[in-house]
Nucleic acid binder design. Structure first.
Length: 640
DNA sequence: ATAGGGTTAG
C-alpha cells in the first residue's frame, strides 16, 4: 500500500503546457531544459496548490500526464527512444513508476521490438512493480521470446508478486504464440483461483489459446462458462470452428449469436469469418445471405469484406458473381486482384488470370507473394508450362519475391502434369525451404498420371522420412503399380496395407441445398434421410452400370473380394453427397459438391457417367480445383 | 487505483 499521495507532475510544474495544447506536436525539442529539472521531479518540495483542493474533482480526470509521457507515446522512431532513454537515466526519471512503465511498454511496441533493450531497461528499474512485470510479459509476448514471458509469469506467481488479470492475459498470449497447451492450462488454473471469471476479454484470449492448440472442446467450454459474451467472443468461437475443422458449426453460430436467446449482432469480422466458412463448404446460398446482411448493416463499403466476397463466389464456382463484385470495387488493392486471379485460376481460366495480372500492374498495384501463387496455379491448372516458368523466373528477378513452398508446389504441379517429372523432382531437391508432405503428394499425383513407378517409390520414401505417409499415398502408389501391370508389387503392397494401421485424413464431402449444408463422410449413416440416400445410391449404381460405368477397384485399399470391394467403394463420401443431390434436385440442375481431399478415380468416373445418365451438371471441388461434369464428359481431361 | 488485454480479407 502506498502512503504518499499519487505522484502528480501537474501540480509540481504548472509551467508545462497543458495536455490539450501539447498534444498536437510533442517532440523532444519541447521538453523543458534538461539541466534545470533534475531533482524536483522525484522529490516534490512544494505542496500541491490549494486551488486543486478546493475543487475536488475525481482524481483520475484531474491528473495530467508528464510531458515526457506524451512524447513517449508519440515516439515512433528508434533513435528518439534511445534519446529519451538517455534522458531518463540522466534525470533519474527512469525510477519514476509511471514514466518507466510507459517507456517500457513503448519499447515493446515500437518498431524496434527489441526484447534485449526492454530487458536492459527493466533491469535498471530498482523496484519494479507488478505493472512493470506485466509490461515485460507483454513485451515477451510480441517478440520472438514468448516462452520467457511465460517463465516470467510463473516466476512472478511463485515469488508471490501481485498479479492481476492483465498479467494472466499477457501470459496466455505468450502461450498462444508458442502453442503451449500445458502452460495455458496452468495460467487458466491461476485465472480460476484469482476469480477472474467474468472478464470477457481475458476469457476470449484463453479461447484463442485452446483454439490454436486444436482443443475445440476446451475453447467451447470456456465460451459456455462465460457469464456474458460480446461479439468478439462469438467471433473467436467462429474462428475456432474454422481452424478446427468445424466449418459447418461456424455457419450455425452466425444464426445462433443473433437468436433471441443471445441477441448478439454479428459485426464485419463475423461476416469475414463466416464468408470463409461458406467458401470452404461451397455454401453459395449462405454466402448470399451474408452478402445481404453486409449490405443491410452498412458494411458494404469495407474492402476486406468485398475481397472476401470475391473469393467466396469464385470458390463456390460462381465466377460471374465474383467478377461482378470485383468490378464494383472502387479501390482494388493487391488482395482484391489476387482474389480475382486465384478465382479465375481455380475455375480454369488461366489466360484470363494472366490478363488480369497484366492489367493489375497497369493500374499501379504491385503483386506480392500471394498474387504469384494465384498466377502460378493458373498456369498449372491450364497446362501453361512456358508461361508458368516465365512467371516463376520473373517473380524473383523482376519483383524481388523469393519463392515460398506454395510457389514451388505450383511449379511441381505444373512440371509434373506436363510429364517433366525429373525436373519437378530436381526442383524440390533444389529448394531452399524444407519440402513438406503436400509437395511430395503433388509429385506423387503426377507420377500416377504418367505411370512413373521408380519416382513414385522414391517419393513414398521421402514421405516416410517425414513420417507423413498416409493410406491415401499408398493408394496412389497402388494405382501406379497396377497401371504399370506390376502385379507382384500390387499384391505385396496390399498385404502391407492390410497389416499396417495407417493414418488417413478422413474424406468429407459437403453439399448445400436450400441454404443448408449437408456433410457426409465415408459410410455415413448420420443423415436424417440416410435410408432414402442409400436407396438412391443403389438405384444410381445399377443405372450407371448399364451405361458402362465400371467400379475402379484399385482405388480401394481394403483387401477384399471383388464383390465386397465394389460394395465398400459405393460408400465414398462424394457418392453419398451426389446421391443426396440427385434425390433433392430435378434433372437439368447443377449438383455442387466440395471435397476436403483429392477425389478418387472411381468417384471421378462415377460423377462423369452420372452427369449424362441423370442429366445433371456435376461440379466437384476438391482441394485445389473444380471438376466439371456434363453430359457424360469431364472438363479436365480425366486429370483428377 | 495506476497501464494495459481479445477476433479480421487473397
Amino acid at each position: 500500500m502506498r502512503k504518499n499521495k499519487p505522484f502528480s507532475l501537474t501540480t509540481l510544474h504548472p509551467h508545462f503546457p497543458s495536455t490539450s495544447r501539447r498534444r498536437s506536436a510533442a517532440t523532444l525539442a519541447q521538453l523543458p531544459p534538461l539541466k534545470t529539472q533534475h531533482q524536483p521531479l522525484l522529490n516534490p518540495t512544494k505542496p500541491p496548490s490549494k486551488t486543486h483542493q478546493r475543487n475536488p474533482v475525481p482524481p483520475t480526470k484531474q491528473i495530467q500526464e508528464h510531458p515526457l509521457i506524451s512524447i513517449i507515446k508519440s515516439c515512433s522512431h528508434n533513435t528518439h527512444l534511445r534519446q529519451i532513454h538517455a534522458h531518463l537515466l540522466r534525470t533519474s526519471l527512469a525510477q519514476d513508476p509511471t514514466i518507466s512503465l510507459k517507456f517500457l511498454s513503448c519499447i515493446a511496441l515500437s518498431s524496434l521490438r527489441d526484447i534485449g533493450y526492454s530487458r536492459k531497461f527493466f533491469a535498471q528499474i530498482k523496484r519494479p512493480s507488478f505493472l512493470h512485470h506485466n509490461a515485460m510479459i507483454r513485451a515477451y509476448s510480441v517478440t520472438d521470446k514468448p516462452d520467457e514471458g511465460l517463465r516470467m509469469y510463473q516466476d512472478m506467481i511463485r515469488r508471490g508478486v501481485w498479479a492481476n488479470s492483465f498479467s494472466s492475459s499477457f501470459a496466455v498470449k505468450c502461450c498462444v504464440r508458442i502453442s503451449s497447451f500445458v502452460g495455458g492450462v496452468q495460467v487458466h488454473g491461476r485465472i480460476l483461483r484469482d476469480g477472474n471469471l467474468s472478464d470477457c476479454r481475458l476469457l476470449t484470449t484463453l479461447m484463442e489459446l485452446y483454439s490454436g492448440c486444436e482443443r475445440f472442446g476446451d475453447a467451447l467450454k470456456v465460451f459456455d462458462e462465460m457469464p456474458k459474451r460480446d461479439t468478439v467472443a462469438w467471433n473467436v468461437l467462429i474462428s475456432c470452428c474454422l481452424r478446427n475443422k468445424r466449418t459447418r458449426d461456424a455457419l450455425s453460430l452466425f444464426d445462433a449469436m443473433q437468436s433471441e436467446e443471445y441477441g448478439c449482432e454479428p459485426d464485419e469480422v463475423s461476416c469475414l469469418l463466416v464468408l470463409q466458412a461458406c467458401a470452404n463448404l461451397n455454401a453459395l446460398e449462405f454466402g448470399e445471405r451474408i452478402r445481404r446482411y453486409i449490405d443491410e448493416h452498412g458494411y458494404g463499403g469495407h474492402t476486406n469484406l468485398r475481397n472476401s466476397l470475391v473469393s467466396m463466389y469464385s470458390r463456390c464456382g460462381s465466377l460471374d458473381k465474383a467478377y461482378e463484385v470485383f468490378r464494383g470495387l472502387q479501390d482494388k488493392n493487391v488482395v482484391s486482384w489476387s482474389a480475382m486471379i486465384s478465382g479465375l485460376a481455380i475455375n480454369g481460366y488461366g489466360r484470363e488470370a494472366i490478363n488480369a495480372f497484366e492489367e493489375m500492374q497497369k493500374t499501379g498495384v504491385k503483386p506480392d507473394a500471394q498474387t504469384f501463387t494465384g498466377i502460378l496455379s493458373a498456369c498449372s491448372h491450364c497446362g501453361l508450362v512456358d508461361e508458368g516458368m516465365m512467371f516463376f523466373g520473373r517473380m524473383s528477378k523482376g519483383f524481388g519475391i523469393s519463392p515460398n513452398i506454395h510457389h514451388y508446389g505450383c511449379m511441381v504441379d505444373l512440371l509434373g502434369r506436363a510429364g517433366l517429372l525429373d525436373r519437378a523432382y530436381r526442383l524440390i531437391m533444389s529448394m531452399d525451404v524444407k519440402p513438406d508432405p503436400e509437395i511430395w503428394r503433388t509429385l506423387l499425383g503426377a507420377c500416377r498420371i504418367h505411370g512413373h513407378v521408380n519416382l513414385g517409390e522414391r517419393v513414398i520414401g521421402h514421405l516416410i522420412e517425414l513420417k507423413a505417409q498416409e493410406a491415401g499415398d499408398y493408394v496412389l502408389l497402388l494405382n501406379i503399380y497396377s497401371s504399370a501391370g506390376n502385379w507382384d508389387k500390387v499384391t505385396e503392397l496390399r498385404k502391407f496395407l492390410k497389416d499396417e494401421a495407417l493414418q488417413t485424413t478422413p474424406g468429407c464431402s459437403t453439399i448445400e441445398l436450400k441454404g443448408v449444408v449437408h456433410e457426409f463422410v465415408a459410410d455415413d449413416v448420420s443423415h436424417l434421410r440416410k435410408d432414402e440416400i442409400y436407396e438412391m445410391l443403389a438405384e444410381i449404381n445399377s443405372q450407371l452400370k448399364i451405361a458402362g460405368y465400371v467400379v475402379e477397384i484399385s482405388s480401394e485399399l481394403h483387401n477384399l473380394g471383388a464383390q465386397e470391394r465394389e460394395f465398400v467403394l459405393s460408400y465414398h463420401s462424394e457418392k453419398l453427397a451426389i446421391a443426396f443431390g440427385v434425390l433433392s434436385t430435378p434433372p437439368g440442375t447443377t449438383i455442387r459438391v466440395a471435397k476436403n481431399i483429392r477425389t478418387c478415380v472411381d468417384c471421378h468416373n462415377f460423377a462423369k457417367v452420372l452427369s449424362g445418365v441423370y442429366n445433371r451438371q456435376v461440379v466437384i471441388r476438391d482441394r485445389t480445383r473444380f471438376h466439371h461434369f456434363l453430359e457424360g464428359r469431364c472438363s479436365c481431361n480425366d486429370y483428377w
